[in-house]
């Protein structure tokens, strides 16, 4: 029988217990960096990185172990003085732009950044005859 129940259970952060490893989370997976500025940078970056396991979430929000290891990696690299953009670029080199919730400046994302401008121009052109720009004309 085809299972068509909405898997709404997933909504409630349901993590299958069967596929967990035998090791505890990495050291920096769930800890803040001692330097508040670095931690803020790391946190901001982690919120923009897509989790490879639960693909709708960022690694900041995911309970998946791989996401925890990735948080650890991000914090270690930031603590070592790397810039968030360098860390992002390093990950994009491995997983492609898919990993970044923020579209980068590659050509495939150009239409995305141009869309708002284009939409406003089209809109303005559509209403150009609807509004009189000169009073009393």
């Amino acid at each position: 029988m085809k299972k068509t129940v909405l898997l709404l259970a997933m909504l409630i952060l349901a993590v299958p217990l069967s596929a967990d490893s035998n090791l505890p989370p990495a050291y920096w997976a769930n800890r803040e960096l001692p330097d508040a500025r670095q931690e803020a940078e790391a946190q901001a970056l982690m919120e923009q990185l897509r989790c490879l396991v639960c693909q709708g979430q960022s690694i900041a929000d995911s309970d998946a172990e791989l996401a925890g290891d990735m948080r650890d990696l991000v914090r270690r690299r930031i603590a070592a003085g790397e810039s968030p953009n360098a860390v992002r670029a390093w990950l994009i080199q491995r997983y492609g732009t898919w990993i970044s919730f923020k579209p980068t400046d590659e050509p495939a994302a150009w239409p995305l950044w141009l869309a708002p401008l284009a939409l406003i121009l089209i809109g303005a052109w559509l209403i150009r005859r609807r509004i009189k720009l000169k009073a009393g004309a």
Binding site: L23, A26, L52, L66, D69, D72, L73, R94, Y95
Partner: peptide
């Protein structure tokens, strides 16, 4: 690979 470091460096996702 105790913290998936090399896995991530290879671009492997699972």
């Amino acid at each position: 690979d105790r913290q998936s470091d090399v896995q991530i460096a290879l671009g492997s996702s699972g």
